[in-house]
Design a protein around this nucleic acid. Structure first.
Length: 564
RNA sequence: CGGGACGUGGCGCAGCUUGGUAGCGCGCAUCGUUCGGGACGAUGAGGUCGCCGGUUCGAAUCCGGCCGUCCCGACCA
């Protein structure tokens, strides 16, 4: 490819409002352009990177027995109704009608559709199966952002496994785990695997592949010992608190006190870690009290995961007042009955605590949780804090932002049972198929590569996914000898199978160098009159900036040795 | 959905308060001089000022409505 005829329009100015470095660089370097919120056009350079990422994915998934499919993006409503997810998916699913008025959806995932094909599996002898596709997914995100990191239309590699028993599912899950690591590492990323919430997918277990980045929307908890979890599911040990000896419960006035902090600052109040925080939630419409230590925050996802509820919403102040007789800020669970009380495990065994009296401007002190409160369930509900200790080894935990580039799920029999996907096992009994599903967001992965591999000058593509291996930068293109040498070199590289772009533009050297660095081509061969006189060209490595002079006639072999 | 901001040549922006039908930088075209780290000069092309309506002799500017985009939050496989 000749740069002068490639559509690689680099920009000098940053796009407005670009907060993620990858977004800024992908726009400036001519890889993507926005069409509307959450929709991006991929330009030729991005298509080359995408093709490489998809090729790596295919190689690794094929290597573990995958067979590639292509399923429709347009789905009939009834299959989603059958699985029960027509309602569950809510507004995130794009819905439309065809000319006959039939309800359709744009596919946001393909468990249902792949399962319709799995209905044709009749015998355990047909299993295991590993089916996958690389296809466009549509999700009407409430808030697309960070360029291509969170969009409404994107390419996903999704695979689905079908096994006769849990042991088989475990094998396929483990194979995917290894394949995913290979995929991300081959793309130049160094992902962390974390335990994760399965969310709307359901199922028994899931692992996310995370790439550290300040632009990431997820938060992950990690420890030197290897413990790693999404903040949504992470657990920890929080510093213990010494409680006083048991005493009689006592109501006392706290005029104007409405917050944990206000009570901590109040003269006869209590420090946050000796208060009980009382939250009121509507869980599938049912009112429940959620208790936490005063200095702890609720992780709503844990509440969702524990209850399995479709809807978990904080109750409105009106509803709270009606049921408890006080406003938020004066609430407590002492003496409450008729409501489910979920208490965070960090409150177990605590006494001498202060909590709201369910009467505005009054609190209770000397509360012994187990003596004075009817707790229905003890659950881990709190959000891990950076100061907490690791549950595995006791060392301090880290919390960092990360990008979720892949997620693998053990679905078990959930979809198979609902949709009736069964096989006859070796004993002739009908058995529900055990399913797994496994996803990689392709464009997000590309952005994650850029997030973790760039510098002040631009993108630094790993050679495995770079749009081109080499850029031949011609200095003084109008100098005949130089031009001839550069074109000869270009032809030789092409003939040798090197992916090369020839910067034959009549631009000044600085412009060409800057563009080559912005676009992020791993190797630059600089061909100029000065070197040509001596029969040499310069080889510059993008990642290190190191330049070496090499004989022109050895260039092809030198470069070939650097490539995978 | 709540809060905030913005929409003016391809890109980044000024102009709006104090109405008189547009300007800067980059980019683009032509010519010349340059050219191993984002050159300079000259000339030139390119704009329904997001859309609709209102006020006014006159609206990018004032008023109303709508649409779009971004940021924070909520939400989110």
């Amino acid at each position: 490819m000749r740069w002068s005829h490639a559509f690689v329009p680099t920009l000098r100015d940053d796009p407005a409002e670009a907060v993620a470095p990858s977004h800024r660089l992908l726009v400036r370097a001519g890889f993507i352009r926005q069409l509307m919120s959450g929709s991006y056009s991929l330009l030729p350079a991005a298509m080359r990177v995408r093709a490489k990422v998809m090729q790596i994915i295919r190689e690794e998934i094929n290597a573990i027995g995958g067979q590639e499919f292509l399923l429709p993006a347009l789905h009939p409503a009834e299959i989603w109704r059958e699985s029960g997810r027509w309602d569950v998916m809510g507004e995130e699913m794009f819905r439309l009608h065809d000319r006959k008025g039939a309800e359709l959806a744009l596919g946001m995932t393909h468990e249902e559709i792949f399962t319709t094909l799995a209905l044709e599996l009749r015998s355990y002898r047909d299993l295991p199966q590993l089916w996958y596709q690389i296809q466009t997914k549509f999700r009407d995100e409430p808030r697309p952002k960070s360029g291509v990191l969170r969009v409404r239309e994107f390419t996903m590699k999704d695979s689905y496994t079908f096994d006769v028993d849990d042991a088989g599912l475990d094998v396929q899950f483990e194979r995917h785990r290894v394949a995913y690591l290979n995929i991300f590492r081959r793309c130049g990323m160094d992902p962390v695997m974390v335990e994760a919430s399965s969310g709307a997918m359901g199922g028994s277990g899931s692992v996310e592949f995370m790439v550290f980045s300040d632009s990431g929307e997820d938060e992950i908890v990690t420890c030197e010992c290897g413990y790693a979890a999404n903040l949504e599911t992470a657990t920890s040990v929080s510093a213990p608190v010494d409680d006083p000896v048991a005493a009689t419960i006592e109501k006392f006035p706290t005029p104007g006190v409405r917050t944990i902090k206000a009570l901590a600052d109040f003269d006869s109040g209590a420090p946050a870690d000796r208060q009980i925080k009382t939250l009121v939630y509507e869980i599938d419409g049912e009112l429940s009290l959620v208790l936490l230590r005063g200095d702890h925050d609720l992780m709503e996802q844990k509440l969702r995961d524990h209850t399995g509820a479709a809807s978990v919403e904080p109750a409105s102040p009106e509803v709270i007042y009606e049921s408890l007789g006080a406003a938020p800020g004066s609430l407590g669970a002492v003496g409450v009955d008729g409501l489910t009380v979920l208490a965070d495990k960090a409150l177990a065994g605590r006494r001498g605590l202060t909590t709201g009296a369910n009467e505005d401007d009054f609190h209770l002190r000397n509360v012994d949780v187990e003596r004075d409160i009817t707790v229905d369930e003890w659950v881990d509900l709190r959000t891990v804090k950076p100061s907490d200790a690791c549950i595995e080894c006791g060392r301090p935990l880290r919390i960092d932002h990360a990008i979720e580039v892949g997620h693998i799920f053990k679905l078990g029999t959930k979809y198979a049972e609902i949709l009736g996907a069964t096989v006859l096992d070796a004993d002739g009994n009908e058995a529900a198929i055990r399913m797994g599903s496994y996803g990689i967001g392709v464009e997000r992965a590309i952005a994650a590569v850029v997030e973790s591999s760039h510098d002040e000058s631009g993108i630094v593509w790993p050679v495995t996914v770079a749009p081109y291996h080499v850029v031949v930068t011609v200095l003084r293109i109008q100098d005949e000898a130089t031009r001839a040498a550069a074109e000869g070199l270009y032809e030789d590289l092409v003939a040798a199978g090197v992916e090369v772009i020839l910067d034959d533009r009549d631009e000044r050297p600085g412009v060409k160098f800057a563009d080559a660095e912005l676009v992020g081509v791993p190797f630059r061969l600089t061909v100029g009159p000065r070197g040509i006189e001596n029969g040499t060209v310069e080889l510059t490595v993008r990642a290190t900036g190191v330049t070496t002079e090499i004989p022109l006639r050895e260039t092809v072999s030198t470069v070939s040795d650097l490539l995978p």
